[in-house]
């Protein structure tokens, strides 16, 4: 069996000596991110690195580095941040957020970046399927008759297979099947 690795795209490989042109940068990006719920504290980051030092993903992934992602946002590297799969790597474990001396809500910030990335079509493959399941059934694992039979056998009460009203709530969510055109 093979496990798939999402290797970093060239945009993230800043590498030594690569010269960024000012024209590639979008200095409004940090403001845009800080307007998202959870992104508010980003400008306070003083890059102490305590987030990266404790990050479990950082230990096993070659390029994921929350401190560097924050720097990239502050520097205005919009495309590099939003087009790369790396924002989806955050495990939302809150280790960094608990320790941040500047009160930057890093996990919430990563969530906000995911929201932004998704709006430009960058998301893991499984996301649209999850959204559709929730929209149609209100749960990620809808129960069918067979499941409820198994539940009964285990001495558990049967449960409804779907919650239709959830679809009404999620009606405003964009159809994630196809990426939005930029």
């Amino acid at each position: 069996m093979d496990a798939q690795r999402n290797d970093p795209s060239p945009a993230v490989e800043m590498g030594e000596g690569r010269m960024m042109d000012e024209g590639e940068l979008d200095f409004g990006f940090a403001q845009e991110v800080s307007a998202e719920p959870g992104g508010e504290g980003i400008v306070k980051c003083f890059a102490c690195g305590s987030c990266s030092a404790g990050c479990p993903v950082r230990r096993f992934h070659p390029t994921f580095n929350p401190r560097r992602i924050i720097r990239m946002v502050l520097l205005g590297m919009r495309d590099a941040v939003l087009r790369d799969p790396f924002v989806w790597l955050c495990a939302t474990c809150f280790t960094c957020q608990e320790r941040c001396p500047q009160g930057v809500r890093i996990a919430d910030l990563m969530r906000a970046l995911k929201n932004l990335a998704l709006r430009s079509g960058n998301m893991p493959e499984g996301i649209p399927m999850q959204v559709n399941l929730l929209r149609e059934k209100g749960t990620l694992y809808p129960l069918d008759e067979f499941d409820n039979k198994k539940r009964t056998k285990a001495g558990l009460p049967p449960l409804p297979g779907a919650h239709e009203d959830v679809g009404v709530l999620l009606g405003d969510l964009a159809d994630l099947g196809r990426p939005k055109e930029e």
Binding site: A47, C48, G49, S50, S52, A53, G54, R58, R59, N65, R67, R68
Partner: peptide
């Protein structure tokens, strides 16, 4: 001690 050397980006 666990830290990142932020200048090199290395986790230490």
């Amino acid at each position: 001690v666990h830290a990142e050397d932020t200048l090199s980006g290395e986790s230490l």
